[in-house]
Amino acid sequence: MLLYTFRRLGLAVLIVCLAMLLLLAAIHMVPGDPAGIALGPRATPEMREAFKAKMGLDQPFVVQYVNFLTNVVTGDLGVDVWSNRPVSTMIGEQLPHTIALAIAGLGWSIMIGIPLGCFSAVHRNSWIDKLTGVLSVGCIAIPSFIVGLYALLLFAVNLRWFPAIGAGENGDLGDQAMHLVLPGLAVGLGWVGYLARFVRTSMLEVLGENHIRMARAYGLPRRRITYVYALKLAILPTIALLGVGVGGLISGAVFAEIIFARPGVGKMVVDAVNTRNYPIVMGGVLVTTMLFALSTLLSDLLAAWIDPRVRQGL
């Protein structure tokens, strides 16, 4: 298990480094003049050069990449082009809000999606199963920002049940929870569908296996068989899906943060794109990519911990 953990960790670090290399290469390859775009058409060539030097874009590509990596290791993500505040502190301030949103969204979808999938699998071909099947495809298909916008329109603007803007008063947990309801709904709805379908499929597979028939032959109660013995096996592919899905969750969180004017990494990055604040965008992308890599890492480790067979795979 320890060996597996180290190997998997090494792979994750390698992937993140490569991903950033790719990003910098892509940015270099596509023709574009970030300084010109940021400063507008009236900027003099000297102003552009100074701006480029400030963003570190004047150096050769390899130097930029090495600088970037060494800076990241020391926790230095550069400074905000306009306010000169360090990017790492700015991200540190915003990150908890994004993580809270992600946990809220994923949390309610796990609590509803997994039992729904189990129920559908056990009562296969009942009307509830069929309805769940159609609804979950619908939930997956509809973009999260549409869910967010419609929720904002209905529950915040028309019915006024929930607040529309912000993350709530600092320190007032109830208020903060109220502010999480609608964005969490928007981020998590697609996941309810995903999880319900996915758990149903793997549950059906597991329920057909010999040891489950054995348990049934012993006369164990059906509920105990489903939720204790079968779910443990059926949950494995779902854990992997959850890890990979955090990437989509981060993308969804960007929209939820914009729509509900919540503080968070997504909103910070979008605002930075609008003001061409290159270091903040790069810092935000790096941190979210690391978050994504971390979540796939954790889900792989969790799967390996539950199922020893997985450990031999790497």
Binding site: A19, G32, P34, I250, G266, R276, Y278
Partner: peptide, 24 residues
């Protein structure tokens, strides 16, 4: 395969935002 894994390491929207910052 390593390259593909690296590309898939990005949240799509974040990658898009980074490219848009530079290219417009």
């Amino acid at each position: 395969m390593l390259l593909f894994d690296a590309v898939r390491a990005f949240p799509v929207i974040m990658f898009a935002l980074a490219v848009i910052t530079v290219v417009g």
